[in-house]
């Protein structure tokens, strides 16, 4: 039981994909123009991570070592396409915004990275929780990034007006430089907190 909780916690904080391992940065920077976009991208990735980790872990003994990467990619791509089609059918508004970035989950290093480093070696239950932890870690990072950029760039959060109408906003926050600046500052903060924690313990 403790092992499972560790699997879950690792992705959320100590090995957070965005702030600690710094992988999967392309969607991180590209879609976080608003809080809802960041959260949706994170949840879509979480779904793919959990499903593909579970399946890859189940099949790990059947897949020959030499063709494991193509096998993993087919499995991941299948789940991504399922997300893409269902999102297009059920949440067309969201799909229009995230559009291009959903298919790109296939090449998100987090998904293949976890499959290769974890799911292909560990039991199913652990792999599922590892995927869930990593996915939720990615989700909160993207939501935070998106919230900050949305507040500063558009004066709203989750589409609701936060700052009074007419407050000057920073247009740059909605553009790629705003993503880099915000990510950099957040990473510095994370490092500061981690350094403090180390000192205490």
């Amino acid at each position: 039981m403790k092992g499972i909780l560790n699997d879950l916690r690792r992705g959320l904080w100590s090995e957070n994909p965005t702030f600690r391992i710094m992988i999967g940065l392309c969607p991180t920077l590209a879609v976080t123009t608003s809080a809802i976009n960041g959260m949706s991208m994170g949840l879509a990735t979480t779904f793919v991570l959990v499903c593909s980790s579970a399946l890859i872990s189940l099949l790990k003994n059947l897949i020959p070592d030499k063709v494991r990467i193509p096998s993993f990619i087919i499995i991941i791509a299948t789940f991504v396409t399922i997300v893409d089609l269902f999102m297009n059918a059920l949440l067309p508004d969201l799909h229009r915004v995230l559009g291009l970035f959903i298919p790109l989950i296939v090449v998100n290093c987090i998904v293949l990275g976890r499959a290769e480093a974890y799911a292909s070696k560990m039991p199913v239950i652990n792999s599922i929780f590892d995927g869930l932890g990593m996915g939720l870690g990615f989700t909160w990072a993207l939501t935070l990034l998106g919230s900050i950029r949305e507040i500063l760039g558009a004066g709203s959060i989750f589409g609701k007006q936060l700052l009074p109408e007419g407050t000057p906003t920073l247009g740059i926050m909605g553009l790629p430089p705003g993503a880099f600046i915000t990510l950099g500052i957040l990473m510095a903060l994370m490092n500061m907190i981690a350094a403090r924690q180390n000192k205490v313990s």
Partner: peptide, 17 residues
């Protein structure tokens, strides 16, 4: 193995589609 995985994937996706 690769063929089976690809075929199962194609089958599922055509259903979802």
């Amino acid at each position: 193995v690769l063929t089976v995985i690809a075929m199962v994937s194609a089958g599922i996706l055509s259903q979802v589609y």
